[in-house]
Design a protein around this nucleic acid. Structure first.
Lengths: 214, 214
DNA sequence: CGCAATTTACATTCATGTATGTATGCTTTT
DNA sequence: AAAAGCATACATACATGAATGTAAATTGCG
């Protein structure tokens, strides 16, 4: 079998992405040979070079396929933000953790990103996209926190910059560590108390940044 | 220059470790060639094979050199624990972040571990040691939280397992993200408000684990 | 002199990228 | 509507370079 119809070609591409995600997870991105990916997808190495320029581009595609749902959440956030900003932050965090807890592919992706990947020069485009996404996300959340301060949901002394970075770190850490041991606790259930605990901390003793420290 | 005295040999070993840390950070562990490490250390590749079996063992040595200070902190903790357990947790967290904020080598090490390394089968011994260390650390901290509950420093309903994992995730996330942008904020200064914020959350709205979720 | 510490030289393995082959689907023309 | 022509979607083969591990050679210390 050589030539496929367009939809079949798309299916091949999808199979390659799925296979890549698995092999990346097993062998690490750098040690992954494209021949393994091809074999797992049921094609040869040539097919990869048709769909992707090289391994870096393949990796980028794998990442983008996975980060899409999170971006959609953020888009929502800016719209419905005005009413109850703190609840929106809470919902965003919960949805991200729930997505992770429920979707095996999401778990695989974050396992790769957190523990099976080396972010060096050759992955510069991915890193750049990551940075941009993170900056956008942080900025959005900080705006929500600012609104929460304005609403009186958070104390007026709250350093929303630090609060944002703290929450972000918390999320990253939770995902980073939970993916290592998904059996250690039920994330779908525990996400809520974990998030609420941090938010309660913000409300009762918000971080206050000394001058010139950020 | 060929043969050295014993102390000089130790110096060579140290130079190799320092060089490896740098090159690991620049190129990622997997893409690092031992020839680069040797060159940076001012020796040839053969010297590496004298001191270390292979790259994995070199990496392990680099990690162990860096994780030593943290272990010392934990050893302290179990001793002075009885009086004010929550303050002990606080101090531990602060010291870890301070160590990171002040020592360039520590920053380099965590940058490598978090962003420049793929934890796959070939690094199994390192992973095993990491797991053991983490488990020990978590167990220690959970004991402190248990004592804090007993002292009345934390509400009796507190799920100390979740509290521990939450704090650990927080720490990991803070280090993981701050190392990416050490200029984004002054960690040495902000560590205190960040930690206190989380601990305040624990005190006012501790995580409560539903049955059978952990 | 024998061993510790390091260099040099060598063989081997292995993944990559590319160049080329090829057959099929798609399109256009008449 | 049928056939030709072209682009697509891969497979195959090859050349290349690069890093590794080991074995042998070298030299200085005790």
């Amino acid at each position: 079998m050589v030539k496929k119809t367009r939809v079949e070609a798309l299916a091949t591409r999808e199979a390659l992405l799925a296979a890549a995600l698995q092999v990346f997870r097993e062998r690490g991105v750098t040690r992954t040979r494209l021949s393994d990916v091809a074999e797992r997808a049921g094609v040869t190495r040539g097919a990869i070079y048709w769909h992707f320029k090289d391994k870096a581009e393949l990796f980028q595609a794998v990442c983008e396929r996975g980060t899409l749902p999170v971006e959609a959440l953020l888009a929502q956030a800016s719209l419905n933000a005005q009413r109850d900003p703190l609840a929106m932050v809470r919902q965003l965090a919960l949805m991200a953790l729930t997505q992770l807890a429920q979707h095996a592919d999401t778990q695989a992706m974050f396992d790769v990103i957190f523990h099976k990947c080396e972010f060096t020069a050759e992955l510069a485009p991915v890193v750049a996209k990551n940075d941009a996404d993170r900056a956008a996300c942080l900025s959005q959340v900080q705006q929500l926190f600012d609104q929460a301060v304005a609403c009186g949901q958070l104390p007026p002394t709250t350093d929303t910059f630090l609060a944002t970075h703290g929450l972000h770190a918390y999320m990253v850490g939770l995902m980073h560590e939970w993916v290592l041991n998904p059996e250690s606790y039920d994330l779908a259930v525990c996400a809520e108390p974990l998030i609420d605990c941090y938010l309660a901390g913000l409300a009762t003793r918000p971080p206050i940044c000394p001058p010139d420290a950020g």
